[in-house]
Nucleic acid binder design. Structure first.
Length: 872
RNA sequence: GCCCAGGUGGCGGAAUUGGUAGACGCGCCUGACUCAAAAUCAGGUUUCUUCGGAAGUGGGGGUUCGAUUCCCCCCCUGGGUACCA
């Protein structure tokens, strides 16, 4: 303990802090201490220290127009408690906050009002910051990041260039939602039941030029490295399934009467002899070629109807299988049998090879299809004999010639080997993971740091050597009606490439972003060495390195800025690197990352991908960005339903702060239940924690505003108080370590209830209690701490130690049982033997009543816990 | 359908290397203070009960001296995912 100086009366805090009011006036106390933290930069962090680091990260918010949602302070309080706890334990804590401010709602607001979204963002951020401050989070506000700040997105663009040069970024036509009425591309969340969210207009799929990131190149590592990180199992599982690795075989079936072969992928090569027909997806390139004259009409009609359906509809119609015969036959690679080739939309072009061998006896979908169209079904795997078809389980082979009686695993190997020998197949691995569609036809996002140029100009730039470190092996090119263009990276030193001002934030009406209309930014004379540019309508500047270029109309998605923000916090003002080597080496990665499980797949997978690219580039020292992850659960409305505008069951955290105080809000959010659980808000329950804080206040502050007369230094602390205090220190410490805040608070309540019932207790006991309370209810704790005679912030600890000698009493409670049922208890010395306890038990009237007239068969004795007499 | 998490009083929840089920809080009940109310304080609160006890952690079975905890089957709720070959 540091507080040696002791005075039984209240002594003004040396830094002229709160009044000596006898009342717990939370609003005065909270604003006083928030100002104190701010003025003194209590929570500012530096990496220039020998102290052990602790980096706790909360998922940064999107500063929406509606302000703080009750879900924010839930997770943020958890993280803040951890930060304050570790700080008190002497760690050098980094606890930052920032703003994920690019995004659709701000853009839509800009369209509506004509205001620049940056302006809107800055205002909303200020509003959010004030609201967060009022809850008393111990952020280092000097480290704020804002994804829409050019000094930030400069480095987002820089990372994109890393991906670009490694061949991980390319351009392709990809389908998007298009609304003819609104003349705009819509995001998935703007499309509801096939209609636009705004105006309820019909939408269609339309292919547009898009940037795509080759995340699939990292599929295996993203899967493999999940083993090394401490995340909720369910989240790991979700990522695992999203990546969706499967190991099987590809096989090529010759086509009867054609030179081409159909390549298929199967996870069950052991069932190869059960393949009785084949199915191509309607989009498969071989379809037009192999469709016979007789079937052409039916096939083209089918393709048309399949194309008209969205993915959603296709899966909605899952119950009934549809398909048509192409009129062609394939030859079975092992038997040479002729088997019919069909097309059906239950086979997806985007997975595997877009074609399958159908084994109706052992695949549910193939079975349904075969039944529908009367195709042969041949069982080749035999289970225990009771199975019915389709049979998906394991077993031994039948109807498979030389492979009969083999186990399926054995057959898998042998048949794959046979295919390989014949040159008609081989072992193969597939992933469900697709490349990441990384562009939006929007204004409010990071511009792509590229210039689209002609082949000649591209070659010129290559030859100059100016961009030698930044070019992909294969140029990124795109061809349309107007010709072929090549993507030239802008020189990194010229970043940021800032968004131009535009007159209107309305989309261009062509499916392209509003940037399309910023002519002087879009169509330019471009200096490829320096990155300078001038409007193309001006005269071409002098110099070899000036070329004609167009900018990219697409911008990056909101994910881009949130993929790496945890790195920027380490060194947020660095103007020459995304973060200094020293900062990256010192802070490494967050020790704890807290956020909602809605990000279990996308954000966390994208971040891992970028981090690995940066690791490969030698820019970060670790393979994984988030070694420890925790999801706070969803807070439900008072009615037990999801909080929503339409249900009108929202809770305004600011209102709660005004009514009860920030400490009460924090404490109550944590006391509701386990942080990870989903649980309903209860406006009556908040009175309980409010009462607790008032009770704690009254135990320390007397009615006259001085220290409570119960706090006496000449008091001999009772053994009971000593034990309970030490148990509380131990319990609270352990609970904070495992983020079990609800039980930590209940333990503090038990201690306060005990102090309340005691006649007197020592000053050190009061101080230790305040220290334990401080991470959860920091404002009242600072106030009490100062009133207890301390002259520096309680935030700096030290955290109280457990005195193990005072953790347990010499007497322990032992429970008597008869046949496993409770029949009384007694306080006995720890050293008592089984004989002593049994003798004692036999004197217990309730025990006597139960064993009377029975024979004792056995006695089970667990020292310090129970004595169980088995009798009948 | 499949995968994951969960199911304990009127409510939120506590207790799992198997050892008194219901900590702590809400709500409710009784009492004190008050003209009264609020606040505060003292006490009670799983159900049934013949007041001895008995039953009880979604349901059924099992292992055990003893099961909320371990095993098997089933039901329900929430989340994820969806024709991935």
């Amino acid at each position: 303990m540091t507080g040696v100086a002791f005075s039984p009366t209240y002594r003004p805090f040396s830094k002229k802090m709160a009044s000596n009011s006898p009342e717990y006036n939370f609003s005065e106390i909270e604003s006083t201490w928030q100002k104190y933290w701010e003025d003194r930069k209590t929570f500012a962090t530096s990496s220039k220290t020998d102290k052990e680091k602790y980096y706790v990260l909360s998922m940064f918010p999107y500063p929406s127009g509606t302000g703080l949602h009750i879900g924010h302070p839930l997770g943020y309080t958890g993280a803040d408690i951890l930060a304050r706890y570790q700080r008190a334990r002497g760690k050098n804590v980094l606890h930052p906050i920032g703003w994920d401010a690019f995004g659709l709602p701000t853009e839509q607001y800009a369209i509506k009002t004509g205001r620049h979204p940056r302006q809107t963002s800055i205002e909303r951020i200020a509003h959010f910051r004030n609201q967060l401050r009022s809850v008393g989070f111990s952020y280092d506000y000097d480290r704020e990041v804002d994804t829409t700040d050019p000094n930030y997105y400069r480095w987002t663009q820089f990372i994109f260039l890393q991906l670009f040069k490694r061949g991980l970024a390319y351009v392709d036509k990809r389908p998007v939602w298009w609304c003819e009425e609104l003349k705009t591309v819509l995001a998935n969340e703007e499309v509801i039941d096939g209609k636009s969210e705004r105006g309820n207009h019909p939408v269609v799929r339309r292919s547009l030029r898009q940037w795509v990131l080759r995340i699939t190149a990292y599929a295996e590592r993203l899967l493999e490295d999940l083993k090394d990180i401490d995340w909720p199992e369910s989240t790991k599982k979700m990522q695992q399934e999203w990546i969706g690795k499967s190991v099987g075989a590809t096989a090529r079936f010759a086509l009867d009467g054609f030179d081409e072969t159909i390549e298929i992928y199967t996870t069950r090569p052991d069932t190869l002899l059960g393949a009785t027909y084949m199915v191509l997806s309607p989009e498969h390139p071989l379809v037009p070629k192999i469709t016979s004259e007789d079937n052409r009409d039916a096939v083209s009609k089918y393709i048309e109807s399949a194309a008209a359906k969205s993915d959603l509809e296709r899966t909605d119609l899952a119950k009934e299988k549809t398909g048509v015969f192409t009129g062609s036959y394939a030859l079975h690679p092992l038997t040479g049998d002729k088997i019919p080739v069909w097309i059906a939309d239950y086979v997806l072009i985007s997975y595997g090879t877009g074609a399958i061998m159908a084994v109706p006896a052992h695949d549910t979908r193939d079975f349904e299809f075969a039944e529908q169209f009367n195709l042969p079904i041949v069982q080749v795997i035999k289970g225990d004999g009771t199975e019915s078809l389709p049979y998906i389980g394991d077993g031994t082979l039948i109807n498979s010639d030389e492979y009969d009686d083999l186990s399926w695993q054995e057959a898998k190997k042998k048949i794959t080997a046979k295919l390989k020998e014949a040159g008609t197949g081989e072992e193969s691995t597939q992933y469900k993971l697709r490349d990441w569609l990384f562009s939006r036809q929007r204004y409010w996002g990071e511009p792509f740091p590229v210039a689209w140029v002609s082949r000649e100009d591209y070659d010129k730039a290559v030859e100059s050597g100016d961009l030698a470190d930044w070019l992909p092996e294969e140029p990124v090119a795109y061809t349309d009606e107007s010709g072929t263009l090549h993507a030239l990276p802008v020189p990194p030193k010229s970043l940021p490439l800032e968004l131009p001002n535009v007159e209107s934030y309305e989309p261009a009406g062509t499916g392209e972003s509003p940037l399309k209309k910023a002519d002087d930014w879009m169509e330019i004379w471009y200096q490829f060495e320096t990155g300078e540019f001038l409007p193309a309508r001006q005269e071409k500047p002098e110099g070899e390195k000036w070329i004609r270029a167009s900018r990219e109309t697409n911008t990056m998605p909101q994910w881009a800025g949130s993929c790496w923000y945890y790195l920027r916090y380490m060194d947020p003002k660095n103007s020459t690197q995304l973060a200094s080597k020293e900062a990256l080496e010192y802070w490494k990665t967050p020790d704890m990352y807290i956020g909602g499980s809605e990000h279990a797949v996308l954000h966390l997978l994208y971040s891992r991908f970028w981090h690995k690219v940066l690791f490969d580039e030698g820019l970060v020292p670790t393979k994984e960005p988030f070694s420890h992850l925790f999801h706070q659960g969803m807070l439900l409305g008072e009615d037990g339903k999801k909080i929503s505008k339409s249900a009108g069951n929202g809770i305004d955290p600011v209102e709660v702060v005004n009514q009860y105080g920030a400490d009460t809000l924090r404490l109550y959010l944590m006391f509701l239940g386990p942080l990870e659980a989903r649980k309903p808000w209860n406006s009556k329950g908040i009175g309980g924690v409010s009462r607790f804080l008032n009770k704690a206040w009254r135990e320390i502050v007397g009615r006259d505003g001085n220290l409570s007369p119960k706090i006496r230094d000449d008091h001999q602390e009772s053994e009971e108080t000593e034990i309970l205090l030490n148990q509380t220190i131990e319990k609270v410490s352990q609970d904070l370590d495992k983020l079990s805040f609800n039980t930590a608070i209940s333990q503090l309540m038990i201690l306060v209830n005990h102090l309340h019932a005691s006649d007197a207790f020592r000053l050190t006991t009061a101080k230790k209690f305040v220290q334990l309370l401080a991470p959860m209810a920091p404002h009242i704790s600072e106030e009490l701490w100062s009133r207890l005679g301390e002259s520096h912030s309680v935030a700096w600890g030290p955290w109280p130690d457990v005195d193990n000698s005072k953790l347990v009493s010499d007497d322990v409670k032992i429970v008597f049982q008869v046949n496993g049922k409770f029949r009384g208890q007694s306080l006995i010395p720890k050293s008592s033997t089984e004989e002593d306890v049994l003798a004692l038990a036999k004197k217990e009237p309730r025990v006597i009543a139960q064993i009377e007239g029975k024979t004792i068969r056995k006695v089970v004795f667990v020292p310090g816990k129970i004595l169980n007499i088995v009798a009948n």
